[in-house]
Design a protein around this nucleic acid. Structure first.
Length: 255
DNA sequence: ATGGTAGCCGCGCTA
């Protein structure tokens, strides 16, 4: 089973790229973030024609998450039941006996801001919910845009970013809390090239200079991590015309 | 150097 997560930064703009990419990569489950589409605007027909079921939770202009699945999803959950939230950032469903959680973690803007407090509260509630669910669904995936670079090696210039948003100690602790529940960062189950990133700022030639961060992740519960056979970042996608600022991240399960 | 780029029904906000 092939899993993929991708912050598309507007599904409307990225739909042609997504369809081409689906045909080329043939993932079984796709976690999308920043669709920026109200549910009535979701391109159901195009996604169905590509061979996918879709569950989605969107809003105008900001946020929005979706799950595309080869198999029909069941038990669809909109939002974290432990954290009522106007912002559409969380969607989960059972697919092939695995509980799939698609997360668009708040960016946090800057350390100490109101948005930062919201980010930490959101993450804390996510961990509490995952802790509950993993006891019931030991086959569990949390994938999405975490807006956290877990370690210094996930940052192009760790000194410049030290303590900054996406890298601060409380954010990294929140990420570790998820790992402490038995989740594994699938990308790090394998040897990977140095300076592997998943997001590059549109500004200042960020991608061309590989000034990036690895903030998009696929976390696998221990039971699934044992069967993970590969993990990668589809960096090539960022080279296309009108790219998302994020590249897709994939993991393969040999089960 | 507090810049810059992209996407949004926008006349700034978020990332």
């Amino acid at each position: 089973m092939k899993l993929a997560t991708w912050n598309v930064n507007s599904l409307k703009v990225r739909l042609p790229q997504l369809l081409t990419w689906l045909a080329a990569q043939q993932p079984d489950v796709v976690f999308l973030q920043e669709t920026k589409l109200q549910d009535g605007e979701f391109p159901k027909q195009e996604i169905a024609a590509a061979g996918y079921h879709a569950a989605f939770s969107g809003q105008k202009t900001y946020n929005g998450v979706a799950l595309l699945t080869r198999e029909e999803p069941t038990d669809i959950v909109f939002g974290n039941p432990l954290y009522p939230d106007e912002q559409k950032r969380l969607l989960a469903a059972t697919v092939g006996g695995i509980f799939m959680v698609c997360a668009y973690v708040p960016n946090g803007q800057s350390v100490g801001s109101d948005k930062y407090a919201y980010k930490l509260a959101w993450l804390e509630a996510l961990a509490r919910w995952i802790e509950e669910r993993i006891a019931v669904n030991p086959r569990l995936v949390v994938a999405g845009d975490f807006n956290i670079a877990p370690e210094d090696r996930d940052v192009y210039d760790a000194d410049a970013w030290e303590g900054q948003i996406l890298c601060s100690a409380p954010e990294r602790a929140a990420f570790q809390r998820l790992l402490s529940l038995g989740m594994k960062d699938s990308f790090r189950l394998f040897e990977q090239p140095a300076k592997s990133f998943s997001w590059w700022d549109y500004r200042m030639l960020g991608f061309q200079k590989n000034r990036g961060l690895r903030i998009d992740h696929i976390l696998l519960s221990d039971l699934l991590a044992r069967h993970c056979s590969a993990a990668a970042i589809n960096r090539e996608q960022r080279k296309l015309d009108r790219p998302s600022d994020h590249a897709p991240v994939t993991s393969e399960l040999a089960c």
